[in-house]
């Protein structure tokens, strides 16, 4: 089975969900024209990242009519995107998996960074579980940025028999004499893809917010841990990739790591 996926590492307007939605719709249209089966947007794609006090103004209930247009669009293409969720006046850094006109999954980010430059822990509440959902393309888990740095979250994705791990991100650039930030992500993600024998789509936004630059450089990883395709650094861009899902069985038979995990037979 094959599928075609578009990763859209968009830049966003901070706190302007109307403008951001327009851009998201534009890229959905493009993905449809490109005959894609799935289109993916970054963490907090609808709102921008460092919202601070804007969290209270731009967060949406999961049933908000504002999202109807995306549900409608998802009748023809599966859509994954990040948004700021208002759940009974508590706020979550969430991601949606939309398919066949419905919300298949609303995932609340578990691990909210609150160190260094990060303030997510100040504004958002954390989700309590890693969720994996059955889709047309296999079992999909969504992790949001910092989640991926937690081995426990990766382990959940592993024992949930994930076929495709989608990592939505708003990861700031830094560099030093030894490395640049994208190298960290490539190493962490390819490690997981290889050990779990799953595809991994890393979608990191582009653009700047008050001097903080999100590095883009989104990529597709094969279940053998190799980068199949990657986007440019720093610039808004959409990249498309053909995915051969038959590689999953090959990768998982080559390195059947999950087979011997004690808790893999719960399902």
């Amino acid at each position: 089975m094959k599928m075609k996926v578009e990763l859209c590492q968009i830049n966003t307007v901070l706190g302007d969900i109307d403008k951001n939605l327009k851009k998201i719709e534009f890229y959905i249209e493009k993905a449809k024209n490109d005959e894609c089966d799935m289109v993916v947007f970054p963490e907090l794609a609808l709102t921008g990242y460092n919202l601070r006090d804007l969290v209270y103004d731009v967060s949406l209930d999961v049933n908000d009519a504002f999202l109807d247009i995306l549900k409608e669009q998802s009748k023809n293409i599966d859509i994954v995107l990040g948004y700021s969720q208002n759940d009974k006046n508590y706020f979550f850094n969430s991601a949606l998996y939309l398919s066949e006109g419905k919300i298949k999954l609303n995932y609340k980010k578990n691990y909210l960074p609150d160190y260094g430059m990060f303030e997510e822990g100040r504004y958002f509440s954390s989700g309590k579980s890693i969720e994996t959902v059955d889709t047309k393309f296999g079992r999909v888990t969504i992790l949001i940025c910092e989640d991926m740095f937690h081995i426990s979250a990766q382990n959940e994705a592993l024992v949930n028999s994930t076929d495709i791990l989608i990592v939505l991100s708003a990861s700031p650039f830094w560099s030093d004499s030894r490395s640049i930030k994208p190298e960290l992500w490539k190493s962490v993600c390819s490690n997981f893809a290889q050990l779990s024998g799953s595809y991994l789509f890393f979608n990191n936004r582009a653009g700047f917010e008050d001097g903080v630059g999100f590095f883009g450089n989104s990529f597709f990883l094969s279940p053998f841990g190799k980068i199949i395709k990657e986007a440019k650094m720093f610039k808004e861009e959409a990249i498309m990739c053909d995915i051969d899902l038959n590689n999953l069985k090959r990768a998982k038979s080559f390195m059947p790591v999950l087979k011997n995990e004690v808790n893999c037979n719960d399902e």
């Binding site: 830049n11 650039f173 560099s175 030093d176 004499s177 640049i180 653009g207 700047f208 001097g211 630059g213 650094m233 720093f234 610039k235």
Partner: peptide
Amino acid sequence: MNKLKINCEIVAEYLIQFVQEE
């Protein structure tokens, strides 16, 4: 001083993008 070495090509591209966008 080696610890202060930067990847000039990438940092230059980043700073240019910063000025343009901001």
